[in-house]
């Protein structure tokens, strides 16, 4: 298992694409907070500061795609053959990838939270406000955002293992994010909707995009995402990953 983890790290450090994808997170955060400040956000309102910090969680869209490519990308380039020859136990391959990608997702999340903090500080200073960093709220929002980056990378690994075709997996994830979950949420009603993966992500990262939904508590969101990660990865290991590699 240790050697698989080392090999997965080396896979990541020897190609460029994953790094471009992860670098997109902090860029999105800078742009988003700049937009918030420029569109007249009130820097004296603690709610605005929280909305600014919550951009960290939005960067998780990129760690999700990053995670999807862990397994699906290997099927696309047929490098999966090599991977399974080195580790015929396919469940272990997924385990190693979950470990490495969750860690990389967390590091990307840290970079995004740093970007959020720095960008917010700069704009608030320029507008004559000052940051409220003593409140637990600020750190729960930033920390939740980091956790969301980590969790969505892991969910991506499971989803990409289940679907195996990167384009299909990414399209599914983004359609779910942008469209389907909103509709499903309305059909289910708020009491059930909050268990869905992206409502859980909102709970964890405290980014209330859909203000109408009754979200889970932050820790509840974290647990739900853990459960989704386990469910996708287990489903993949017991279904699609057992198929013949030809």
């Amino acid at each position: 298992m240790q050697s698989m983890i080392r090999s997965e790290f080396r896979k990541l450090t020897t190609v460029r694409a994953p790094w471009l994808l992860l670098a997109a997170g902090p860029l999105l955060v800078v742009a988003g907070i700049t937009g918030l400040a420029e569109s007249g956000g009130n820097v004296h309102d603690p709610g605005t500061q929280r909305a600014a910090f919550a951009h960290t969680g939005l960067a998780a869209v990129f760690t999700l795609v990053f995670g999807i490519l862990a397994v699906a990308g290997e099927y696309r380039h047929s490098t999966i053959t090599d991977t399974y020859l080195s580790s015929p136990r396919r469940g272990r391959v997924v385990g190693a990838k979950l470990t490495v990608y969750a860690l990389a997702g967390a590091v990307a999340g840290l970079a995004s939270s740093g970007a959020a903090l720095a960008t917010t500080a700069a704009w608030w200073a320029a507008r004559g406000g000052h940051l409220h960093l003593s409140a637990a709220d600020a750190w729960l929002t930033l920390g939740g955002g980091v956790a969301a980056n980590c969790a969505l990378a892991a969910i991506g690994v499971g989803l990409g293992a289940l679907i195996r075709n990167p384009a299909a997996a990414i399209a599914t994830a983004l359609a779910w994010f942008a469209l389907i979950e909103g509709i499903a949420g309305q059909l289910l009603g708020p009491a059930l909707a909050r268990w869905l993966p992206f409502y859980a992500t909102e709970a964890l990262s405290r980014s209330s995009l859909s203000a109408t939904a009754r979200l889970l508590p932050q820790w509840g969101g974290a647990l739900m995402l853990l459960a989704y990660t386990a469910a996708f990865a287990a489903a993949a290991v017991f279904t699609t990953l057992r198929r013949d590699v030809t």
Partner: peptide, 12 residues
């Protein structure tokens, strides 16, 4: 059909 990632160097 042994695959290689096109962007990865042979040695890597």
């Amino acid at each position: 059909s042994t695959g290689f990632h096109p962007g990865r160097r042979a040695r890597d």
